[in-house]
Design a protein around this nucleic acid. Structure first.
Length: 410
RNA sequence: GGGUGGGUACCGAAGCGGUCAAACGGGGCAGACUGUAAAUCUGCUGGCACAUGCCUUCGGAGGUUCGAAUCCUCCCCCACCCA
């Protein structure tokens, strides 16, 4: 922390920082902070808090993580706060439901995974990881009371999701009011200069400013990033809604998921998930608008770009080829799960589907067969009593994307 | 502490003694179609057996009844209003 760092000129930094940002509040303060940092050679503390409730990071998280990475690349100090303590509260931001709280231990464990996955995007130098139980866990009751005295119920109810829930008669746990305050204490503890978050974090981030001031610090600047809709195109991408692309999804999966987003989201994904340069986004937008490119092809391009970002060129090509093959040409992919069985074994199709997780239950397996979703070696099977004898390799297909190969053991 | 309205399948929400595995919507899955795992249309959507059948489910525990998601008792939980 002590060695002097050099930074690009402030104007240049601001251009990068503004890229894709939804809101920077207040922008002039950020410029001042940057100027001071530039002159003194001291990096800004850029905070990102994460709630380790769901250990799987997805493309939605990547939006704000990428912004943090940009700060790192500019020479600033990223501070990733693992909210192991706050996870016990369960952040209600943007949700209309109370979240199930987590034990400290469990939160720690998930925090570790979070960190591992975040480092797919972040660089490991200029990065501090801290657990907020370190300071929040030590606060005494009277310290907590003093903290809460800085805010009023009416102020808390300004937050949209609280207000909504209150109006709708949906419970709000008292502890949930403590969440923004706890998060604000994180900013105090690490002396944050800037805090990043999604737009749904706006309120919490602003509380940080107020509280920092109350504790005698210069308030942080807040920077919010747009929220990325999930695959359904309506709800925010989230694990619990299952509409997400995980950072650890294999290339083909990633590709396919992008192909399933509604057409209207193509550009947004290009911008926020791929973080493509503004000119390229503009170019694609123009092509789409003038109908010089088929939306399918545009989506194809975005899907490829996303896979390329995480897995490189080769994987991107392969994933594209796979998609082309399986979904456009409806052929069989080259690498499908294979089970070896004793040659000549005869099994009921229904049993087979359930045994290998191609169907959740026998009833479902039957339903699938009746709905003409199951084929064996390219032949639709409609008889629920069908059996299969494995004399040579047999390929079973369920729906569009579930395959299984039965291989007689040699 | 008092009052009122509630707790139904993955979610929302009807049902208020048999015709209830439970309307309807969302979600999910499948099929058709297509430029895609988009959109649209159609079907399916507790489990087991499939021939009619059986089992589990409507906050929990008991009870009434030939028969309960529906009635009664106690309990737990939630919201709102009053104090």
């Amino acid at each position: 922390m002590s060695e002097r760092r050099t930074f690009p000129p402030v104007a240049e930094q601001m251009d990068i920082i503004r890229e894709n940002a939804e809101e920077i509040l207040p922008e002039e303060e950020l410029v001042q902070k940057l100027e001071r940092s530039y002159e003194k050679g001291i990096p800004l503390n850029v905070k990102l808090g994460c709630d380790p409730t769901s250990p799987d990071l997805h493309v939605g998280h990547s939006v704000v993580l990428t912004k943090l990475r940009q700060f790192q690349d500019l020479g600033h100090q990223a501070i990733l706060i693992i909210g192991d303590f706050t996870a016990m509260i369960g952040d209600p931001s943007g949700r209309s439901k109370t979240r199930p709280p987590l034990s400290l231990e469990e939160a720690r464990k998930r925090g570790q995974t979070y960190y591992e996955q975040a480092s797919i995007i972040l660089r490991s130098d200029r990065l501090h990881i801290v657990y907020n139980s370190e300071w929040l866990g030590k606060m005494t009751f009277d310290e907590v009371i003093r903290l809460t005295a800085h805010y009023t119920v009416a102020q808390m109810l300004e937050r949209e999701d609280f207000a909504k829930r209150y109006k709708a008669g949906i419970p709000i746990g008292l502890h949930e009011f403590l969440y923004p305050l706890a998060q604000a204490m994180d900013s105090v503890a690490i002396r944050a200069d800037v805090e990043l978050g999604g737009t749904d974090q706006r309120f919490n981030l602003l509380v940080g400013r107020t509280i920092q001031e109350k504790y005698g610090q210069e308030p942080q600047v807040i920077l919010t990033m747009p929220l990325l809709e999930g695959l359904d195109g309506r709800e925010k991408m989230s694990k619990s809604l299952g509409n997400y692309i995980a950072l650890t999804d294999p290339p083909e999966e990633m590709f396919g998921k992008v192909m399933s987003i509604p057409d209207e989201l193509i550009l947004k994904y290009y911008r926020l998930a791929v973080f493509a340069p503004a000119e390229q986004v503009a170019h694609l937008e123009k092509q789409l608008k003038e109908q010089r490119i088929n939306p399918r092809d545009a989506k194809f391009q975005v899907a490829k770009a996303l896979v390329r970002r995480y897995y490189g060129e080769e994987a991107a090509e392969a994933a594209a080829a796979h998609f082309e093959r399986v979904f456009v040409k409806k052929a069989i992919p080259d690498d499908i799960p294979t089970v070896t069985v004793a040659p000549g074994t005869t099994v009921g199709l229904v049993e087979l589907l359930t045994q290998h997780q191609l169907a959740a239950s026998k009833s479902e397996a039957r339903r699938l067969i009746q709905q003409r979703a199951v084929s064996v070696d390219g032949e639709k099977i409609v008889d629920i009593h069908a059996t299969i004898t494995v004399a040579h390799p047999v390929v079973i297909k369920v729906g569009k994307r579930r395959f299984l190969k039965l291989q007689p053991s040699a």
